[in-house]
Design a protein around this nucleic acid. Structure first.
Length: 473
RNA sequence: GGCGGCGUAGCCAAGUGGUAAGGCGGAGGUCUGCAAAACCUCUAUUCAGCGGUUCGAAUCCGCUCGCCGCCUCCA
């Protein structure tokens, strides 16, 4: 039985979807105003594995993720430029160009990490009418109020406000940085709609004049549109727990009168060399930069070695270590494939493989403990490396298991060794043969010279029981 | 100032009441002409520190120190 940690109850709970076997899962997507970074990798790899494991467990998952391409309120009542607009000004592009450019970058990097695409990837700007509808509903119920072209949610009308994040309205600090916007009844009230001045580049007509939607609204609207009034799982970064998710709950439940989300899942944050990642500290790492140095699979594997609810520190030594560990798994995988050949996998996997599968399953069922699951992969690699050529049947079964656990569930890809062209093959085969003649004559000097020269050309020789193997590195 | 979380070997990192997973690194060994790869063995009497609860704590409680997040857009 799958156990998931629910932020709402602050404890692990048995997972039982509202309408089994269907699972409606919504994850807060990116704001597309800049390149994706390490934090996105951790968050979306984490939820990708959750989706993969749910599907592996037989659930029919609908995975919805938004693209925030508008609507960032800047501090209340302030200079009024949102991030997308600011970037548009800096890059001298239309806001839509900015949003679509960074959306493409986002998916490019997510694809490299082998994250499955959401079933529905929805943009905020495509759902303005639905947002207006929800605001009207809230106004009609007296849970929101309009003031001078702005519409605010009346937090006092939602007593459960603060339950998710565990805070009381009275504890919130008013005006930490800015004065509260004019016209708000309470400083904790949040915007559903903001009036736009004439120069504002993104604005829509509404019953309250031209303006743009509040940030929290899009998630409430799109999740209920595509999943229903009650979601099984809502995921996102811990940093969004308050105020974003708190506000989503308030407006959704106020509008529908139904529980908004059954299980809230939050992933923890990343640090770089032990420090918070931020532009001002100059340690902001985009995935594009990172992938120049580390294979995306290494990054994915590194993330999987931690837990999604724990903070994770990125450093070059840690990623180097992960790369080596992943290479070991990859070698084992390919050696398994070599032994299995064309052999069909049998019905029964047999021991020790069945035991590995069971343990792997148990780790994943314990709140998606990928670190434990990865440890089982290493047990499998060890067992795989001790199979002999005569055990092709077992190797085939093991290979199938590897594909299922490491591939389907964890989303790891083991790239095959680089292949060589036909003429290169002939030349290297000849040199290997030549070297083996030297070895037979115990001419170690020349034999070693051949090996060294090939190595400096990127070809590595390994002498084994069944002769000499070579591969490109 | 308020709220929440974390601190586990040289490094990364699981483990949340029953006697410390895993990876990297290091040491030794098997194999090898030597390598490489692979495999085997070892590598934290101890979980930031100090007290307390308990038959028993890394795990619960209190205090101290350090770090992180949120309270303002952020995965």
């Amino acid at each position: 039985m799958l156990q998931v940690y629910n932020t709402l109850s602050r404890s692990k709970e048995s997972f039982a979807p509202i309408h089994p076997p269907h699972v409606g899962l919504y994850v807060c997507g990116p704001t597309v105003y800049d390149d994706p970074h390490l934090g996105h990798a951790k968050s979306y790899v984490s939820f990708d594995v959750i989706v993969r494991f749910l599907r592996h467990s037989g659930f029919k998952v609908r995975y919805v993720q938004n693209i925030t391409d508008v609507g960032h309120l800047l501090g209340e009542g302030d200079e009024g430029e949102d991030r997308v607009l600011k970037k548009a000004r800096l890059e001298k592009l239309e806001p839509v160009e900015i949003a679509q450019k960074y959306e493409r970058h986002f998916f490019r990097d997510m694809d490299l990490l082998n994250n499955l695409r959401p079933d529905i990837s929805c943009r905020a700007t495509g759902h303005i009418p639905e947002m207006i509808e929800m605001i009207e509903k809230l106004l009609k119920q007296g849970k929101a109020y309009e003031t001078n072209g702005d519409v605010y949610f009346d937090v006092s009308r939602f007593p459960a406000y603060g339950r998710l994040s565990g805070r009381k309205i009275d504890d919130l600090r008013e005006g930490v940085r800015k004065e509260s916007a004019e016209g708000k009844r309470h400083f904790a009230d949040f915007a559903l709609w903001k009036k736009a001045d004439a120069q504002h580049l993104m604005q829509w007509p509404s019953p309250w004049g031209r303006g743009f939607p509040g940030w929290h609204l899009e998630c409430s609207v799109m999740s209920t549109k595509y999943i229903g009034e009650s979601l099984d799982i809502h995921g996102g970064g811990l940093d969004n727990q308050f105020p974003h998710h708190e506000c989503e709950i308030a407006q959704s439940e106020a509008a529908t009168g139904k529980p908004f989300v059954k299980y809230w899942l939050h992933n923890n944050m990343v640090t770089v060399d032990g420090q918070k990642m931020s532009k001002s500290l100059g340690n902001f790492v985009t995935l594009e930069e990172l992938f120049k140095k580390f294979d995306p699979m290494t990054v994915r594997f590194f993330i999987l070695q931690g837990h999604y609810r724990s903070p994770q520190d990125f450093s070059e030594p840690a990623l180097d270590a992960a790369a080596k560990g992943l290479a070991r798994l990859s070698d084992a995988y390919h050696s398994l494939a070599g032994i299995a050949g064309d052999q069909e996998a049998g019905e029964e996997t047999g021991e020790p493989w069945a035991g590995f599968q069971k343990k792997f399953q148990a780790f994943m069922e314990d709140d998606f403990s990928t670190a434990g699951a990865v440890a089982i992969l290493f047990d499998m690699a060890r067992a795989a490396q001790s199979l002999t050529r005569e055990q092709a049947g077992q190797a085939a079964s093991a290979l199938r298991l590897f594909d299922m656990l490491a591939g389907d569930v964890l989303g790891l890809r083991f790239t095959p060794p680089q292949s060589s062209g036909e003429s290169e093959k002939q030349v290297v085969d000849y040199l290997v043969e030549l070297r083996n003649r030297f070895r037979a004559e115990k001419n170690w000097k020349l034999a070693d010279e051949v090996r060294q020269r090939l190595e400096s050309a990127g070809i590595v020789l390994e002498d084994g029981k069944d002769g000499t193997k070579w591969s490109r590195k």
